[in-house]
């Protein structure tokens, strides 16, 4: 464990707490893409298949349970909660995210570390996470103005993988055997997808204006 990875995990945790705060405090999920939340639940469920077979540390296991649990709770809130589900932007959140799932699975069948059940699903979860934010970014552009908590949620979610990239660079120089090409390339793609959001987020912060994404 290094400071970059720990910072990345904490930033990821903060993004989830901000999202839970927004939904719980405002009893609204307007501006949040249910499809992105469903994709993230799938990402965690397929990535942590080794949850009960490989033990690394209490921290590792606890964080996996937190990520799986929170993503399922958020999906439940947005689908089932009698008040929250009324504020879901159903007509705006129309990204066909099934294509993202199929594309990631096909790519995982082609590019993986080993052709084993766990490795295929691990690679699938890495590829899917890289593009899971697309429905959310599209929804933000369509819904025009972004409320603060939603903007902060996307900002922290985008930042965490950037910390992981620093972690991979650090591990590359400190651990001779470290080789994790799949994560590095997917992580770069994932962070790059947030680039324009970060730009508009920084502009709105600098000018102290509401975050506006161009349609």
């Amino acid at each position: 464990m290094n400071i970059f990875r720990f910072s990345g995990d904490m930033t990821h945790l903060i993004s989830i707490l901000v999202l839970l705060l927004k939904i719980y405090a405002t009893k609204s999920c307007s501006g949040i893409s249910l499809k992105t939340q469903e994709l993230y639940a799938l990402v965690f469920l397929t990535r942590y298949l080794n949850l009960f077979t490989e033990f690394f540390s209490v921290y590792n296991t606890v964080m996996k349970l937190v990520f799986i649990g929170s993503s399922l709770v958020i999906v439940w809130y947005m689908r089932m909660h009698r008040v929250v589900k009324l504020s879901y932007d159903k007509e705006l959140d129309t990204f066909r995210h099934y294509f993202l799932v199929v594309a990631s699975f096909v790519l995982a069948l082609l590019v993986h570390e080993k052709f084993t059940f766990q490795e295929i699903f691990w690679a699938f979860s890495i590829y899917l996470e890289a593009i899971a934010i697309l429905p959310q970014l599209v929804l933000l552009q369509r819904s025009g103005n972004v409320d603060n908590l939603t903007g902060q949620y996307v900002f922290f979610l985008g930042s965490y993988r950037a910390f992981y990239i620093l972690n991979w660079i650090y591990r590359y120089f400190t651990e001779n055997h470290f080789a994790r090409l799949i994560s590095c390339i997917s992580g770069l793609v994932q962070t790059a997808l947030y680039a324009d959001f970060f730009y508009y987020y920084f502009i709105s912060w600098k000018n102290n204006k509401k975050l506006q994404l161009p349609a």
Partner: peptide, 10 residues
Amino acid sequence: LREEKVHDEL
């Protein structure tokens, strides 16, 4: 020996 790959990251 191919190093055993461990997914120790989240």
